[in-house]
Amino acid sequence: MINIYCMKLLAIFDFDGTIFNSVDDVFICFNKALRHHNFPTLTKDEFYKVLGGNIDEMVSLILKDQNTPENMELIKDTYGRLYNESSKENSLPFPNIHDVLRQLQDKGMFIAINSNRKNDSINYFVDKYFNDIDFAAIEGHNPAYPSKPSPCGVEIIMEKLNVSKKDAIYIGDSSTDVRTAQNAEIDCIIVKWGYGNQDVWKNDYIIGTVESPCEILNYF
């Protein structure tokens, strides 16, 4: 059967939860920062519920009714220092995702990243684990632009690469990713190995879900 998605030219990947399994180190450092300033710590399930936004949005949700500007800066600064100093030994690419990226590259696809993680942090992991992958564009969190689910990052990527909406596809794991793709008016597939849940997998907007990285290739 002919694959109706074979004409896609651009694959835009979310980073955390899609390409990279980073949640444990982020979770550990956030709890250390909260404990240091005598705020309640989070369970893993509680932490999953605040994922998807940029650092400011995450800290605001974590602190709840104590999310004053002063408290937010305290936690952000302490978390940032702890995370930068950490070994990040638990942060690794998801199994087989590297091979899929290489196969897409070999097919001549544009591969890009759109994330609410800061660019310098994305580049750190890309340089360490994906130095053979030629990412055509990386658009992380930039305070000068709105974060996901704004389509801003996706639109910058498509404009830079001169790719139309119909030729792009967004690959992510969360409801934020679905809304980002919807706001950008491009197709979206959702991976099941990330930090999303069944509500995301059943979203009417997505064109499909994948159980393993190799299944991504079926859409090209």
Rank of each mutant, 00 (worst) to 15 (best):
V163A: 07
K49Y: 14
G196P: 15
S91H: 13
I171E: 02
K166M: 07
L92Y: 15
N54F: 00
I186Q: 02
N71F: 03
I169P: 01
G52Y: 01
K49G: 09
Q66E: 13
G52N: 13
Y195G: 05
I19P: 08
N119S: 08
Y129T: 06
T18P: 07
F110L: 06
I157D: 03
N197G: 03
M1V: 14
A184M: 04
T43R: 13
E211R: 07
F220A: 13
T68S: 11
K166P: 13
I55S: 02
F220E: 09
P213F: 05
D199T: 11
Y48V: 06
D77C: 12
S212Y: 15
N90D: 13
N123F: 09
N162V: 10
M58H: 03
I171N: 07
M58I: 02
N90M: 14
F94L: 01
T209F: 05
S91P: 10
E139W: 11
G52K: 04
L61H: 10
Y83N: 01
Q198Y: 12
T41L: 08
H37Q: 11
A136H: 13
I156E: 07
V154Y: 05
N119R: 13
D99Y: 08
S60M: 15
Y5G: 13
K32R: 09
P69Y: 06
I2D: 12
A136L: 14
N119P: 15
A168C: 15
G17F: 06
G208H: 11
A112I: 01
N71H: 06
D24A: 11
N38Y: 12
T78D: 13
N90E: 07
D25S: 02
Q198E: 12
L92W: 08
D25M: 05
I157E: 10
D45R: 07
D45F: 06
P143H: 00
